[in-house]
């Protein structure tokens, strides 16, 4: 059996500022090479923060990270200077939600890709540009030669995201992080980008962590799904397990709130309430205030973590005896 590519053990992230925010509260995650995991959750649940922890992209002076993060054998939290820079983009790279904001507006696409390759592989600018062109061709940007000299604002949203993917994959990372890469795109373009990502992932044989709030997207691209709420995973499992037999009331709520299978004219079953503010470390079940099957003990103690088999976890008192919801 091969070693896992990513191992996160009891990772916590706390932001200090005018007020403290407990953004991530004990995330455990194991990812094998070539595997795809989706982290599913609503805004503010800590999914992007979890992702950025893997690249150490959070502002150093205001962030306190606890636990252990290992990627490809390296202890990410203790990386420094050049070693950290080699890790970023070389071993793990990232696609951002809005490529318009994530690409430098005053450099051409070709330059931005070549720069990354030159940095990581120490090759000439000429060779870097050649690689950039090759990458743009692989992400199937129309007339790639011309796009090499284009600036981000001169391209459409879909093309920009393709360019972003080309940039992220240009140094053959082992792990690709995708932070809601299709949220800022048109629905038709979304599907193209998803298909492209899935295809490239197989071609390059890399693992992928995909952050999204769209169950449909998660089902489309991933092998496993982790449902995140208030900074912790409340349920993990294979796509099939999560869709067919969700055990956590939050997961059930998310599935019920989906448009698929909804009857016309009927109201969607939305989850009432809003997620907690996370100013203090949770001492009870974070979902309890919104939960339809809440019991008194949910509000006094942390719910048990129930592990069925490796990769299948539910953080709820109802995990074992299914509740009548």
């Amino acid at each position: 059996m091969t070693d896992p590519l990513v191992e996160m053990k009891d990772v916590t992230v706390r932001f200090h500022g005018t007020r403290t925010v407990h953004a991530v509260n004990g995330v455990n995650l194991t990812l094998m090479p070539g595997e795809t995991l989706s982290i599913l959750g609503e805004s503010g649940s800590g999914k992007s923060v979890t992702l950025k922890t893997l690249l150490r992209l959070l502002p150093e002076n205001r962030t306190e990270i606890g636990g252990e993060v290992r990627v490809a054998g390296a202890d990410v939290l203790s990386l420094d200077g050049r070693a950290l820079a080699n890790h970023r983009g070389g071993v793990v790279s990232m696609i951002f939600q809005d490529p318009m904001l994530a690409l430098d507006p005053v450099y051409t696409i070709g330059d931005q890709i070549a720069e990354a390759v030159m940095r990581h592989e120490g090759i000439s600018r000429q060779a870097g540009l050649a690689r950039a062109l090759d990458m743009l061709t692989r992400v199937r940007i129309p007339s790639p030669e011309r796009r090499m000299k284009a600036y981000p604002h001169e391209m459409s949203g879909g093309m920009r995201q393709r360019a972003m993917i080309a940039l992220a994959l240009s140094c053959r990372p082992k792990l690709l992080l995708a932070d809601e890469p299709t949220t800022a795109l048109d629905a038709t373009v979304q599907i193209q980008i998803l298909l492209l990502l899935r295809e490239l992932q197989r071609e390059f044989g890399m693992a992928m962590i995909f952050v999204t709030h769209d169950i449909g997207v998660a089902v489309e691209v991933s092998d496993r799904i982790a449902v995140m709420y208030a900074g912790e995973f409340v349920e993990t499992g294979t796509v099939r397990q999560i869709i067919r037999e969700p055990r956590h009331p939050y997961t059930k709520g998310l599935l019920a709130a989906n448009l698929h299978g909804a009857v016309k004219g009927e109201r969607l079953d939305a989850i009432p309430g809003a997620p907690p503010a996370l100013e203090t470390k949770p001492t009870a079940c974070s979902f309890a205030p919104r939960c339809l099957v809440r019991q008194d003990r949910c509000e006094t103690a942390r719910p048990p973590v129930v592990n069925f088999d490796p990769g299948r976890m539910v953080r709820c008192i109802h995990a074992v005896e299914p509740a009548m919801a």
Partner: peptide
Amino acid sequence: QEFVSGLRAKGLLDFGVFRH
């Protein structure tokens, strides 16, 4: 701006970011 995160994410050192 977010693109500075993008630059760090692709592994640029401080000097490389400074150039941008």
